[in-house]
Design a protein around this nucleic acid. Sequence first.
DNA 1: CATGGGATTGACT
DNA 2: GTCAATCCCATGC
Length: 193
Amino acid sequence: MSELPAALRLPVDEAAPALLGHTVTVGDCAGVIVETEAYHETEPACHAYVGRTSRTEVLFHAPGTWYVYRSYGIHALLNAVVEEEGVGAAVLIRALEPLRGLDAMRARRGVTARSDFDLCSGPGKLSQALGFDLEANGTDVLGGPIRLGPPPPGWTSLDVLAGPRIGITKATELPWRFSVAGNRHVSRPRPAG
DNA sequence: CATGGGATTGACT
DNA sequence: GTCAATCCCATGC
């Protein structure tokens, strides 16, 4: 029996950096989280800012649920729901360092992934590499198709960089993008530091 | 019911 | 650097 990672019990701006180093596993493929962003219902960049709707419903669930939504009509973006039931908050998983199943990831990513640094170095890329889609929305982070696990040996006490979030137009002043310092699997643009 | 805007990526100038 | 692809869903008439 695995337990819900303690990081998911933290406020979202602490949960996001705390999830760095944790693993995400789908079937035979796995990666280590190297980049995250925090989103909270009290700031307008968060989908939950508009309140409970059919789209945002999952964001208000208890910690331990995945929120997966379609971005730009093309990509599935993966978020871990955090904070107490009734509060809309989630951590966007933006990049992974591939750990297992790299051949399957390369096959799904195709020729556009010229190197292993292109496999999971972005929120849309990692969903394609791991092979999940919107059907995973609302599933459990422990018992569902996408499983969140603790950091492997050597992935604790990481040096974390914080900076402004990517690709949003509102609340850009919040330093809620977090990444493992110096890790080459982080998405572009690289955070300063 | 029609419209418009993305928590992105990859191809192209 | 610019830009299109593509679809879910919130909003407004």
